[in-house]
Design a protein around this nucleic acid. Structure first.
Lengths: 132, 132
DNA sequence: ACACCTTTTTAGAACCATTATAAAGTAGAT
DNA sequence: ATCTACTTTATAATGGTTCTAAAAAGGTGT
């Protein structure tokens, strides 16, 4: 089973439901953005199987904690996740309410000059809002 | 009344409640970050007066739409606003769950190389997550 | 000051994403 | 197969935000 490692590392047993979630999340060329609801619907349609929301929430959060998924910092009523865990950024099209990936190489190097006493930088995320 | 302009521009009449919200938001040297609840509590404590949540929400959103307040893009169960509307960024201390301003001058110039067809850049916001 | 009409405030209900719960089901070890 | 701990599930609870409709306040003309 190709997802065993991700599940094990996240402290999750490989159950049928979790493997199906993995299939939808990770068995694809392209990375994508999603909300919990998006994901639950995708599973239902793509695998013709309903997984309870609680399970989806738990699994997604376990993956997020281990870095197999990333939360996208944006103000919305729903939380957006990204299967693209490489260091990158986002456009947010305000009109269409859609996220677009922005590779690190498409943003000049970012140098944070200010230091905070006793703290390390964990991540630097850029959100570029777009209008017409 | 010193807040007339902000209220007028936001399409709001200068009522007692709205002027009190202005007082707490804008009558201070330092800018600050807040949630709607923070603000309602601050008004209650500072002015010894309770303003209904609905009014606070309406007024804050009207100011935000006109650019007198900024939403801070961050994943949280509550929405964070900033009275600092200058072009700037944020640290987010994950442990303390606290936001810290990061001046534009403390971040090297950011150059977005990728262009999106027919869209203009409205804002570029950087969130720097901090850990111990 | 008064009457009239519009806007605003308010308390509470509604909404909805997320989290908690607890009972039934499943996995893995022995 | 049995036992125990972990999982799934439907459903309830939570909590921030939005909606509602009735009461209050503002603005205007007389």
């Amino acid at each position: 089973m190709k997802y065993l490692e991700k599940l094990r590392n996240s402290g999750l047993r490989p159950t049928k439901q979790r493997l199906q979630i993995c299939e939808v999340l990770f068995d694809t060329e392209k990375t994508f953005h999603f909300t919990i609801n998006d994901l639950a619907n995708k599973i239902k349609k793509q695998l013709n199987n309903k997984i309870s929301l609680a399970t989806v929430y738990n699994t997604v959060h376990a993956f997020e904690k281990k870095g197999y998924l990333k939360q996208i910092p944006i103000n919305s009523n729903q939380t957006y996740f990204d299967t693209n865990i490489s260091d990158h950024h986002h456009f947010y099209d305000l009109k269409e309410e859609k996220l677009i990936d922005l590779d690190n190489s498409d943003v000049g190097p970012i140098n944070i000059l200010k230091k905070i006493n006793g703290k390390k930088i964990k991540s630097v995320e850029v959100l570029v809002k777009l209008e017409d």
